[in-house]
Amino acid sequence: MNNPLALVGRAFLGFLAQTGRAAQFAGRAIWHSFTPPFFLRLHLAQIMRIGYYSLPVVGLTAFFTGGALALQIFIGGDRVGAEAIVPRIVVLGITRELGPVIASLMVAGRVAAAIAAEIGTMRVTEQIDALSTLSTNPFKYLIAPRLVAAILTMPVLVLVADIIGIFGGYLVAVTELDFNGAVYLQNTYDFLRTNDVVSGLVKAAVFGFIIALMGCYHGFHSRGGAQGVGTATTNAVVTASILILAANFVMTTLFFR
């Protein structure tokens, strides 16, 4: 019992078992998301909840992130040529990295938590068992709509975040740093690359998948009443956030090297 190697080994085996369970869950979730029957009404409701109602949060964070980014680059960079450097880095940073990552982290906090709490409560009050006894597959009825909605709406949210983030940078540059607005916009436009935006949107779809999957997975496996649901909610947000950052690193490596 007290052998430290045994403790490390047990923890590692536990981690592997958990990863295996999550992967199996992901496989089932994907399978049931793309095979009939589809509950279109539920899909629409989730698109509203996950996508539309996240707009204010995503918009605000993107705005302030873009503004802070412009300010930092100006302060830290060379004043000579700042007119070109600031818009260039803002547009690159927002579309490639900060737009998708910050928007996804915010949505993870909002949506993964809500999904885990809702599905977790349904689990501990036996509502998920009730679904099965009423000949309704919980994967199709509960998980597929959330998964599909998150994958579809995250890219749209990130597109909005890109626009508002760049606008935040523009506003700071023009009002605080005395940049010429027309020149700033021209520079932004010149440095805007389709690939940068598209890669960010691909990332966003993957992050959406991670967010919904972690919310559903932890909620679905929650145990033991209110405390269990609380733990599931925390775990959903933490694992979703870590996986988003890890996946971001992997995708950046794949796309840009």
Binding site: F39, M122, T125, E126, Q127, D129, A130, S132, T133, L134, S135, T136, Y141
Partner: peptide, 30 residues
Amino acid sequence: NRKFGMLFQGAALFDSLKVWENVAFGLIQG
């Protein structure tokens, strides 16, 4: 499972649906 009906200990009603939608759930979805 279509042969079965089950009354759960805590009733396990779907709280996002109205009472009649709960009762009709197996008929509509199942």
